[in-house]
Design a protein around this nucleic acid. Structure first.
Lengths: 234, 234
DNA sequence: TTTGCTTTTATGTATAGACATAATTGCAAA
DNA sequence: TTTGCAATTATGTCTATACATAAAAGCAAA
């Protein structure tokens, strides 16, 4: 015997997901559901509030509750952690910092990050290698104003991404995924043909409005893909 | 003056996001928070339950509540709807069904979808065009067992994706994003160079375990990208 | 017809208490 | 030392009630 909360939730979800209650359909008032399930309004209210938070239904005072219109489609993709993936697959992983410098950002980067031009950033170029095969090239900028301790870090044990994730929390992230043809320099480092299609993932993070880091990770298209499973109902 | 619920939530979120309460940190007991904020346990409980549902904290009976470990990184990307986007941008959009047939699926597709080989599917090849420039090529399979009414649909007004989204709800989706070099046939249809990098989005949806549709949408890499913003705290 | 007020109503937030349940802790017996 | 039971405790679920609030609906005056 499940909990009542879950039963009510399952019932309503099933009706929405099956299409029995189409978008725009009026959901019974809290008082009606209260009667139907023989429970208090608080119980019904918590269920409906949860469904509303998940975007399945729309609630408005006095107007009532209706099934939400299907939202803009979205894809949820897992971003792999090389070290973790390699450990699971039982292959050897290593990374190599190809270059490191502190530079003021140019106009384009300033626009992307929202920082004033000239702000000093730690710039790193990292190559990720698994079983001696290059897997990805990572260009990273770290805002030294937000993460001053990055200046002294050698990134000997962990690559910049992992190091940052463990050390600096973030509140907002922006992702862009592109397909690009590898240029000569890139192709050489990744040991692929010039012009080969590559997946380029751009990720920027902020912490309470303060810019933290930008990563541009280029994956050879024949070796990598981004994938994810997704259910609208968490 | 905000509501107490929101104030408690903001307080806790701020402490987690700022790093003051690191992953693993013990969060005060409900009774303590009750005292701190001078409210009932239900109020505190609802806040903590919400944060737990959002994955920010982990709760276990008797053991207490702690800040959750940062989860696997994920990117949430918006999938554009051409018709909608075109309308907003004020450009002309049209689509063209290049081919249509009903075919039994091959072994590879059977593996991807989980259906028995030989299942009959409606196969559509659609070209999306904005201001006379091809924007994407869409190869779609629709499971006629799940969506029999697709057989009679002419897809005159809406492209298959939009038609399906409005008509058939789904409960699970799988996404794969790849970078590929355009082959000759594809390049000709999209009016790009053979070998040009393209973003290929593969999307499969199910409804309560029953396979609904598979779409493989190829976007020229120089014309499109997938983007998304994301906050861990909804 | 339009504007402005009042009433009604469905949801929003909150309380104080009750019992259920899972998991840890501590104690006692083998 | 180990095993097994009982007590403790923090969270999980639920009730019954109260008042707040936004928005629709109805009504009346301009």
């Amino acid at each position: 015997m499940k909990h009542l909360h879950q039963r009510i939730r399952d019932d309503i979800e099933a009706r929405i997901m099956s299409g029995e209650w189409a978008p725009g359909h009026r959901i019974p008032f809290e008082h009606e559901l209260m009667g139907q399930y023989g429970c208090s309004r608080m119980t019904v209210n918590k269920v409906l509030s949860t469904l509303a938070a998940n975007g399945l239904i729309t609630r408005r005072r006095r107007a009532g509750t209706v099934v939400a219109e299907p939202s803009n489609q979205q894809a949820v993709l897992q971003i792999q952690d090389f070290a973790l993936d390699a450990a699971r697959a039982g292959v050897e992983y290593r990374f190599k910092i190809l270059s490191r410098s502190i530079e003021p950002i140019d106009a384009a980067a300033a626009l992307r990050t929202g920082l004033p031009p000239g702000t000093e950033m730690l710039c790193l170029l990292t190559l990720h290698v698994m079983d001696d095969v290059p897997q990805a090239l990572e260009q990273r900028l770290i805002n030294l104003a937000t993460v001053p301790e990055a200046d002294k870090e050698t990134f000997k044990d962990d690559p910049p991404g992992t190091w940052l994730l463990r050390r600096v929390p973030w509140t907002d992230a922006e992702h862009i995924v592109r397909a690009v043809n590898a240029d000569g320099a890139m192709a050489k480092k990744l040991q692929i043909q010039t012009g080969a299609a590559c997946l380029m993932l751009e990720r920027r993070t902020w912490q309470a409005g303060a810019f933290v880091t930008e990563a541009r990770i280029t994956y050879p298209g024949d070796r990598h893909q981004l994938a994810g499973r997704f259910s609208p109902v968490a």
